[in-house]
Design a protein around this nucleic acid. Sequence first.
DNA 1: ACTAAATGTGTAAACGTTTACACATTTAAA
DNA 2: TTTAAATGTGTAAACGTTTACACATTTAGT
Lengths: 342, 342
Amino acid sequence: MSDQIKTIKDIAKSLNISVATVSRVLNKSGYFSPEVGKKVMDLVQETGFVYNRNARALKNDKTFTIGLMLPDISNPYFSSIALTIEEYFNRIGYALYICNTKSDPELEFKHFNTFIANKVDGVICISQMSKLPNNFMQYNIPIIAIDRFPICNIPITKIMNDDYQTSFEIAELFVKKKCKNIIMISGNYENVIINAELLKRFNGFYDGLKMHNITFSQENLYFVDMSSDDIIFETEALINSLIAEQKEIDGIFATSDQFALGAVYALNNAGVSIPGKVKVASYDNSLYSTICRPAITSVDQNLHLMATTACEKLLTLINSDQKKSNEVIIIPSYLVERESTN
Amino acid sequence: MSDQIKTIKDIAKSLNISVATVSRVLNKSGYFSPEVGKKVMDLVQETGFVYNRNARALKNDKTFTIGLMLPDISNPYFSSIALTIEEYFNRIGYALYICNTKSDPELEFKHFNTFIANKVDGVICISQMSKLPNNFMQYNIPIIAIDRFPICNIPITKIMNDDYQTSFEIAELFVKKKCKNIIMISGNYENVIINAELLKRFNGFYDGLKMHNITFSQENLYFVDMSSDDIIFETEALINSLIAEQKEIDGIFATSDQFALGAVYALNNAGVSIPGKVKVASYDNSLYSTICRPAITSVDQNLHLMATTACEKLLTLINSDQKKSNEVIIIPSYLVERESTN
DNA sequence: ACTAAATGTGTAAACGTTTACACATTTAAA
DNA sequence: TTTAAATGTGTAAACGTTTACACATTTAGT
């Protein structure tokens, strides 16, 4: 029984060859004889040797790691994206860092620095990126942003839905169902009240209603505090207060299934019939929308396609000389009608 | 404007000092004068310098990274644990690798090797670990297992619930509610039909029923294929087939909310009243169980406490000489009664 | 048989850190 | 005033890889 084999030096010593040869075998690069090749591979097999990626990274300036930053992994919306991304990259030998930003700019900043320190080969970000390290550009790390984008001039590949168009369609659905008093529910983040994505949804929805002469304004837009531990409960409380003040509502457009769920929960509790009295539609098309009674009409954002596209684009950038790109990719979303708008 | 500052060498050159001094300042180790200290810190601040963790790891044999392995991050059960773990470790400066095993032993094996290659400081595993690298012991990496455990003799800290006791209580609840024909639903994994956790739940449930002379056997235990994309749908199909063959059932004990949801979905569709005709109880106490109509009685496994305990134990092992432990920690779970068993 | 190309292997430098050691200077104790 | 301890700084080796380069040997083309 040979000594412990922990480095290629150990392998070299054990087989009386040089580390260079071992490295060449392990990387299948350069010349080496089949006999030596077999000896090395056999020993690797037998001992289960694994090379040190930190050392390799140091030499090669390539870590085979990806950083994924998102607001909250416990949210099914984000975790389903995370699953797709992890599977994509693990399949091709990359490891994945995940971190939660809670939409907190300070955390985003900290995580970004950790990514830089760990020399990730690329970043996928589903967070606002309100505060990027000021020297970020000098680290040639490609970034793909999904669904939300920073207000900065760093070139970033952006992947988004055709939100305006789909929200417009939702508006038309409400109109078709004779709704007149519609409210919209969205999340607010500590510092970002209106983000680009919300704006597109608001505008699409606004224009869709306006086309049919239904009044809708910012006053019909309600916010749920996203920093809360229980967003569904927060939404419930919001709707309860609207019910309490006897506000007339016959349609609710939520920018996330979680809000829609909270709304349905509150309406159910109050004995308000859905869709009889109030129609509900939302974004996400998560499991929530199918589980809920009544099932909720929701926009499917094609998350798997978004995530896969993000991976492909990122990989392309990683493997190209030009690490930065400003490309904008629109992924089509589509409305799935269910009981809540019947 | 000085040149790009990317390494401590750049800092040293820029300030006309040695890298050793820069390193000492950055690590606040050893002696350095306040003036030089300030100069270095100012430059770091100004340039946003971030040290290279790979190089540091190579020298220090410490990466400040943790590996988290779980079957499927898109499952809220796992993602809520992942959130707690990520937040715990990020707070103290660690980064987190996440990978999905899909309960596939080959993937587990591959991911474990990646963890070794990346020299993680510790591993938290919520997967079966059917196949560990044979040389694993020689890498002194502490492992904490949550909820499911390998069949091997590697010392691993195990964190689990008092499943037997709680399942016993659920049995008593069913008895109290006059249920006689109860089935149990669990997931099966490609190669692990009966795992230890299921065994405890089955035994606790069995003993609880037996104490009141209610017959229950393995024939009352049904499996849902966990490799399916849509587990809820699979469960629904299972229950539908039981309904079709007119099987008499007045109680369903599911080992996961997802199964319970599928069951409720199927029963609702078939017009079978819950809890009138059939009582349902499950494990997880996830959002699903509160959202569902009727809300489902479910066992809260104290996930946050489990995850936090895992983190604390892991950190203790990381910071101690003895990296391995066989400790078994029992986290109490508790039953949350809801409409489905009224 | 002569030469050039192809093959196989080893030496040593480099990647960006940390730190033992050496050395010089300052401070404090006697 | 002498001397030991404390303080401040630099040099160089080390961590585990990869790879340019050098060198030797084999193979192939004439």
